[in-house]
Nucleic acid binder design. Structure first.
Lengths: 190, 190
DNA sequence: CTCATTATGTGACAATTGTCCTTTGTCTTG
DNA sequence: CAAGACAAAGGACAATTGTCACATAATGAG
């Protein structure tokens, strides 16, 4: 099971068996059930979660009570409240499970410990964070330049099979439009 | 002048004079005039620019010909096309100057060279990228959860004095609304 | 200083999207 | 098997926002 984490890391740097065992010892395995909360708004966001399998989402409620999905996370994605995690502050986001899920989580202390002790892991986390930053920039571009239909197409390309796994009301919540508007978009025959 | 870069780096790690001189030797000083392009869509985005003074913006044109501003960069900000820079591909964004500006730029090769040679600089860039990632997440949250009025208030808080430096049509372009809608928002007396 | 250009505000109208409601079908659970 | 919960589509109407047109103010070049 932890092989998935190893493969994920080795896309960037190669590790010996001993090194990987040491890295792995800094992670905690945790299993969540469908609908279970991983992080709740206001909690201390202690961990960043690497998803082994299942499906999770991070989201926020606005002042009018509407929820907005920031991210869907499937196998090999990371999920947390990044702001709260890196600043060691209380979570603004919620993270919960759309399906039963298995994760490997790492605290910020352990992440910094690994970076300080292993040059390879500092390189890995630097590269991984850079990739996350670039992906965030793409998301920002899609939010400011694309209309809802284009964002929908980008979503189904980015998450193949997601439509079969989640209700369309959640897709609409990710896109920032109402369920009804999404329904109108997808029923158009262009 | 390069003292600004030193102060910026030393918010995260302390450097000796020799170390800073060595770091600085990997940057290139460059001056730009108002309206001059720093990066053009389709160009090879070789550099990441640290802004010493002036005001720049990064932006994109959508398929209908409307432009959307991604970022305003003033003193002590970094600006580039992150996706193109980190993936060594052609720019999707444009970067140009709203005022005469001075910058210190670093190529990806020199950045990686510094990271490989100086542990402190790898730490610096890791922390800086993490901060950029967190800031991007905040921008995503503001785009999906806030209405135009709230985004406007967040913008003037994030860039104090910007309203006095740029036309409102550019503010509207950053917020993703029309010039007229922005005008109506700001003339409301609530 | 003058003239042209740009920036800004506002009204009228169109287009888009949200909200509310009903209907239908599917799935879950006792 | 039946009842309730949930998901989805579509109609009617309201609210928001964009577009176009025009007037005025501010700015900049020669």
């Amino acid at each position: 099971m932890s092989e998935k984490l190893r493969q994920h890391i080795e896309e960037i740097i190669k590790l010996t068996d001993e090194e990987f065992e040491y890295v792995l010892s800094h992670f905690t395995y945790r299993r969540f059930l469908k609908n279970q909360y991983v992080i709740q708004n206001g909690d201390y966001a202690k961990y960043d979660y690497f998803v082994l399998n299942g499906l999770l989402k991070s989201w926020q409620i606005d002042e009018k009570g509407k929820s907005h999905i920031v991210l869907f996370a499937t196998e090999n994605w990371w999920i947390s409240d990044p702001q709260a995690y890196h600043n060691q502050s209380n979570a603004i986001l919620n993270v919960d499970c759309l399906e039963d899920s298995e994760t490997l989580s790492i605290s910020l202390e352990n992440r910094e410990k690994l970076c300080a002790e292993m040059r390879k892991m500092e390189y890995f986390f630097r590269k991984k964070t850079t990739a996350g930053y670039v992906a965030s920039q793409k998301r920002i571009l899609s939010l400011i330049s694309y209309n809802a239909k284009q964002r929908y197409e980008y979503l189904i390309q980015q998450y193949p099979g997601l439509l079969q796994r989640v209700p369309k009301s959640l897709i609409a919540s990710y896109l920032g439009i109402s369920r009804e508007t999404l329904s109108r978009l997808t029923s158009q025959r262009p």
